[in-house]
């Protein structure tokens, strides 16, 4: 042990609605949680896919948006002071000899937890990959889906593909350091913020960047090093010299490393029982859209129910000798003290 591990009762993987509510149910039982999510903010699908869309089937809320639900859940769990770790993917999960767990993220952190709750929804959000032959060979060398170091793009011939905020923001940010920059989009209309679009159009008018209406068709260059990119346009095939490509087609969910943790899966979903929502590995639970059992419905409210039952079993694992009495937040002064209202 290096001594740098983060030690906690529970690691919750996924900060969507079910992961957040799990913190509440575990918190009522005095269990401390660290929450890890691949996105840079809480909410999961509610934040990434439909923050402004109405949800009509949350009990007690005739209508609430994805962001509104996320904000409410964050307020509800605040008394339990969960610690959040965003923009990280849990790569490794292993069960130690004493039955506890060691988790490792792609940022290199190590967590030691007595219980793991997988609330990862449809899996981890990852960039959509354009269906271009051999693109994998270029990824990480000359094709990038995010900017880690600006210097990797200095004095390069950069091509950015997409019409949303990410594409436009990086067009504006990278233009000053690029040797050349071409923005490519399938149509001459952009869903990005109007201000960014105006700035981009001014750069085009000044001849500082090029705008190409078309779709990516092929990559050219040896050993993963891009030299030229081909596009299909209304005027036929057009090619552009390029040493860097950034495709921005948004995110999609992939199961990711969860598939390698030795859990029983069924059609890319984690098999659990319906008493404790425990996986085939004792101490690892799965709640929300990522689990499956007879009669499963992928509803947020199902995940809330699963979180409550999971928490009871998690408590027994972590404090086997403690006698837990079932209480209501309405009447229990003890619970109300934990919530900071009594």
């Amino acid at each position: 042990m290096s001594g740098n591990e983060i030690v906690t009762d529970v690691v919750v993987i996924g900060a969507g609605p079910c992961g957040l509510f799990a913190v509440f149910e575990l918190g009522l039982l005095d269990l401390k949680c660290h929450v890890i999510d691949i996105l840079d903010r809480p909410g999961g699908q509610c934040a990434e896919l439909y923050p402004e869309k109405p949800i009509y089937d949350i009990p007690g809320f005739p209508v609430i948006t994805g962001q509104g639900l996320t904000d409410n859940l964050l307020a509800q769990i605040a008394p339990f002071s969960p610690e959040f770790h965003y923009s990280r993917m849990v790569n490794g999960l292993e069960r130690l000899e004493d039955g506890s767990f060691r988790l490792e993220t792609d940022a290199g952190e190590v967590f030691l937890a007595k219980v793991v709750v997988i609330a990862a929804g449809g899996g981890s959000f990852q960039p959509k990959r354009p269906p271009v032959a051999d693109i994998e060979a270029y990824e990480g060398k000359s094709v990038f889906y995010s900017v880690r170091k600006m210097d990797d793009f200095r004095d390069q011939d950069i091509v950015i593909v997409g019409g949303g905020d990410s594409a436009l923001d990086w067009t504006l940010n990278l233009q000053p350091i690029a040797r050349s920059l071409t923005l490519v989009h399938r149509r001459d209309a952009f869903r990005a913020a109007p201000d960014s679009v105006n700035k981009m159009k001014a750069l085009v008018a000044d001849g500082k960047i090029s705008l190409l209406i078309g779709q990516i068709a092929g990559l050219e260059g040896p050993d993963g090093n891009l030299e030229r990119i081909h596009f299909a346009t209304d005027a036929g095939d057009v090619s552009v010299p390029a040493t860097r490509l950034m495709p921005f087609f948004g995110l999609t969910m992939k199961l990711g490393p969860v598939a390698d943790w030795g859990l029983e899966l069924n059609d890319n979903l984690i098999v659990v029982d319906t008493e404790k929502f425990e996986t085939s590995v004792p101490g690892i639970f799965a709640i929300g859209d990522i689990n499956t059992y007879p009669g499963k419905l992928k509803l947020i409210l199902s995940g809330f129910h699963e979180a409550a039952l999971m928490a009871q079993r998690a408590k027994k694992i972590i404090s086997p000798d403690e006698r837990v009495i079932f209480q209501y937040t309405t009447s229990s002064t003890k619970l109300q003290k934990k919530l900071g209202v009594a």
């Binding site: 959509k128 019409g163 990516i216």
Partner: peptide, 11 residues
């Protein structure tokens, strides 16, 4: 729908 189709690489 048009906006969402922008996130489709094979439109």
């Amino acid at each position: 729908e048009e906006d969402m189709l922008d996130t489709v690489p094979d439109v």
